[in-house]
C-alpha cells in the first residue's frame, strides 16, 4: 500500500504501508513501479520522497547478510 501524503511545488511525498513498510524491496517498488507510473502520467513531477519509517515495519525483510 502506498499513500500520497503531500505534493509541495513539484515534490511528491509518499508513505508505504502494509508489507512494503520495512521491506528490503521497498525502494524497488517505489522507483521501478510507483515512480515510473507517476512520471508517465505527469512527466514534470520532481523528486518522489519516501517518508516511511521502515525500521518500525511489522515484517521487514531485512535479514542476515554475509560480511
Amino acid at each position: 500500500m502506498v499513500r500520497l501524503l503531500e505534493v509541495k511545488e513539484n515534490m511528491v511525498y509518499v508513505q508505504m504501508g502494509g508489507g512494503c513498510q520495512g521491506c528490503g524491496m521497498a525502494d524497488v517498488t517505489l522507483k521501478q513501479g510507483v515512480e515510473i507510473a507517476i512520471r508517465s502520467e505527469i512527466p514534470e513531477v520532481g523528486e518522489i520522497m519516501d517518508t516511511t519509517d521502515h525500521a518500525s515495519g511489522d515484517n521487514p525483510y531485512y535479514s542476515p547478510s554475509k560480511k
Binding site: 524497488v28 517498488t29 521501478q32 513501479g33 515510473i36
Partner: peptide, 18 residues
Amino acid sequence: TVASEEDSSVAHLNPSGF
C-alpha cells in the same frame, strides 16, 4: 530490470522493469 525471487505487486506498472 530488477529480478527477484518473489513477484512484485507493482510489476504491471512497468513490465520491462520486473
